[in-house]
Design a protein around this nucleic acid. Structure first.
Lengths: 251, 251
DNA sequence: ACAAAAAATCCCATATTATGGGATTGAGCG
DNA sequence: CGCTCAATCCCATAATATGGGATTTTTTGT
């Protein structure tokens, strides 16, 4: 039933019940029943003329996530302070949520690049510095599972053909304080990413500076990278402090 | 199964499966199954230590809504132009989604009020000028249903004890270009709302200026209201133009 | 205000599938 | 390496989702 939600894309944000049923191979009755249930949960909503679109509950739930996500509160402050020192480009934080990486907050200088980086953009797990820097810091057990389930995607991304080379590749990345990527996700874009950890030292996000490719040649990458690393450390520290404070309040 | 999502609140954003099962009266097996399914859909995600929170799919879906919602693209421009002329306070757009009204976009002067108005805040349908101005412009059939299903809430909000008085109350509101409300949702807040229509002349949103209550006495409300009405009309016009353009492209 | 079209709900016998209690496997931690 | 907590597996039974079509409600056009 939940895969009904998959039908709603940016290209096709509105569906009629009949079209949905046809597209998903459901009978009329079932399609109506699913849509009704999803509407009752607020995940879908009628928009007039028999059309349905994604519903208000999603917006509300996202708000809840935003309000209880330490990455946002902390990240907004850090990024605001960092952005002016970074020059042209955008700063964004990607979070690890389950086995998905997506951007959760960004700060942009006006006219920078395009809007595709906005909150909620899903990142492929194995491509782009923002994801890979997170990958490199995951615990071994988790990496094993990921390699087993996604070996094709990993090979295609050039991260290794077998478990041993995959692991050593990631170890090399982990040894460095930041990772760069050139046009891995968007052409013409150069990116620098650094890892963000939670209070227990587990990886759970990354901070990335994305900028026009030419800046990689014109400016000093090491200097910019130092800013990104500094920002990531600031977020790590602030999140750690926040979680510690909360735990102490509870006990 | 979907009511599992209801358990996740700002106060309790992380649950263990066992706690969820207990809270919702599910057996161990069922709780684990539900959580697993919701995780597969991305609506929940594990956060370590047996905890689960709302998942990445919600963030992604909200992005999809934002990117395909004409209210946002158009509203952002209009509000940016309007805000400087409004003085202290915040401007926000509330959308009608199914039978729910919630804020979908806002623009705030720094230090204004609090953050509770941010995107996704649900508004009670029968209280607050932002909701009521929408209510007043709904077609009669829809109002009938609402009155039947929510007569208590309507009476409690002072909108009428019976169908006739409810209808005439709304007709009076509809006859005016804007509606004001004092401390209806938040104490100390005075609000001015105007209706926003889609290309076919149906109500589907409202524009509201919320400000400290004292401004209602110190400043000229009519002047401020004119600004809000002007903004709402601008959004209506821009949305209409946009939808028209899309339809012509299709045909 | 009325008729025609579209949208959504209702109905119910049948088969599919969810349920739950407990045992088992698998991770993470010291 | 052993311990604890988390999560999956298993399967007989009961519960409930399914689908095809008629019916009702709502919307649209005149």
């Amino acid at each position: 039933m939940l895969n009904v939600l998959d039908a709603f894309s940016e290209a096709e944000p509105v569906w009629t019940v009949d079209a949905l049923g046809e597209s998903l191979g459901l009978t009329r009755s079932t399609a109506y029943r699913y849509v009704k249930e999803l509407c009752e949960a607020g995940l879908l909503a009628p928009v007039g003329g028999g059309g349905y679109s994604l519903g208000p509950r999603i917006i509300e739930l996202d708000r809840q996530i935003r309000h209880s996500d330490p990455l946002l509160t902390v990240g907004a402050e850090v990024l605001a302070g960092l952005l002016p020192r970074c020059g042209e480009g955008i700063l964004f934080i990607c979070g690890l949520r389950g086995d998905a990486v997506l951007s959760v907050y960004l700060a942009a200088n006006p006219n920078s690049l395009d809007i595709s980086y906005s909150r909620g953009r899903p990142m492929p797990l194995f491509r782009g510095s923002a994801s890979v820097i997170i990958l490199a810091h995951l615990p071994e057990g988790r990496l094993r599972r990921l390699f087993r389930d996604h070996r094709d995607a990993i090979a295609a991304a050039g991260l290794g053909e077998d478990w041993v080379s995959f692991r050593s590749r990631l170890r090399d990345i982990r040894a460095r304080p930041y990772l760069t990527g050139r046009a891995q996700l968007d052409r013409g874009v150069f990116a620098i990413s650094a890892p963000v950890f939670d209070g227990d030292g587990n990886i759970f996000a990354s901070l990335t500076l994305a900028m026009p490719e030419r800046r990689a040649d014109e400016d000093d990458v090491a200097t910019l990278a130092a800013l990104v690393v500094e920002g990531a450390r600031a977020i790590t520290a602030a999140v750690g402090a926040r979680v510690t404070a909360r735990n102490e309040t509870r006990s």
